[in-house]
């Protein structure tokens, strides 16, 4: 990897972290409604994963989608604007935190019903297969989604039809407040793929370069026409499930231990230790990410509300 690529990955991770920290503040100020699920702690997962895709590869994820949106190339401006429900948001203020997308960047949402987007991902891959496109659909979901029926219907269909889809389980150890071992018959989630004869691997989700390498291999496998592949990426969310999480289900000590394993800190040390970048160069990147974040907040706060007539727009494509 070239130095610029390293710095870009580092920048994206820092940007996600800063945008999420701003989002938490905006939420506490009452400027963001509904639910807010932060990606803090998991930045290396989608940054490493999505950096390995080609432009024709589709990405679809669950409701913890702000970081994924940024990795897919959505601007911090349109992400924060969507959080604030502004017309300049990625979904024009109609989707909110859980429903961001930009089809022009091959980012297909942002889906809030646990597991429901997995059959849709199979369908995206089916569409590519049908049209003989060489794209891979990258479908991200949490460990909690692997216990619902949709997961099993989708994995089964993907194997039966040999669909070009990469299943990516972000195992952050908890489905809301319920630990994996309390909700899933197997705590190594990739074992579930074995039941469908889908090859799998498991990777450390706090190491962005390990995620990137595993993702490159997995995407190449799927693109080669061999059918679906399953990647389990083990990670940890540093914040609660959502902003309203009392966090009674895990000990502060456990969270502290994982925070010492901060994916941004790990990567920063790696870049310095391997003389890829200097501290001052990385500080400059931090500064740039900070400016982008503050600009995004300023942009979002000063953006207009959606006009009233938008209430009845986008119900149907074909007008009556």
């Amino acid at each position: 990897m070239k130095k610029e690529e390293h710095l870009e990955l580092y920048y994206q991770m820092v940007l996600i972290r800063l945008v999420e920290e701003q989002a938490a503040q905006l939420y506490q100020q009452g400027k963001i409604g509904g639910f807010l699920h932060l990606y803090i702690g998991q930045e290396a997962v989608s940054t490493g994963l999505i950096s390995a895709r080609q432009p024709q590869d589709r990405v679809i994820t669950a409701y913890r989608d702000h970081g994924v949106a940024i990795n897919c190339g959505l601007s911090a401006r349109e992400v924060v604007a969507e959080l604030l429900g502004k017309v300049t948001g990625s979904s024009k203020g109609k989707g909110g935190s859980m429903h961001m997308a930009d089809v022009n960047k091959n980012f297909w949402g942002g889906h809030a019903i646990v597991g429901a987007h997995l059959p849709i991902a199979a369908g995206l891959a089916l569409g590519d297969q049908y049209q003989k496109n060489d794209g891979v659909t990258i479908c991200m979901f949490g460990d909690g989604a692997t216990n619902i029926g949709y997961f099993h219907e989708a994995l089964n269909l993907s194997k039966v039809w040999n669909l070009p889809v990469l299943w990516v389980c972000e195992n952050n150890q908890y489905g809301m407040g319920t630990a994996v071992e309390r909700a899933s018959a197997v705590s190594e989630i990739r074992q579930k793929a074995e039941g469908y004869s889908i090859p799998s691997s498991r990777v450390d989700g706090m190491d962005v370069l390990a995620v990137r390498k595993a993702s490159e291999e997995a995407i190449a496998y799927v693109r080669s026409g061999k059918g679906p592949y399953f990647l389990e990426i083990v990670t940890y969310r540093f914040r609660g499930h959502s902003m309203g999480d009392p966090e009674r289900y895990r000990k502060a000590e456990e969270v502290r231990q994982w925070q010492e394993n901060d994916p941004i800190g790990i990567y920063r040390r790696y870049l310095v230790d391997h003389a890829i970048a200097t501290e001052s160069e990385l500080n400059e990147v931090d500064q740039r990410a900070n400016e982008t974040t503050l600009d995004a907040v300023q942009f979002a706060e000063s953006s207009p509300e959606p006009p009233a007539e938008m209430l009845f727009q986008h119900i149907y494509v074909d007008a009556d």
Partner: peptide, 10 residues
């Protein structure tokens, strides 16, 4: 779900 995804691709 499969039909939805396939429809999204055109």
């Amino acid at each position: 779900g499969g039909a939805i995804g396939a429809a999204l691709t055109g």
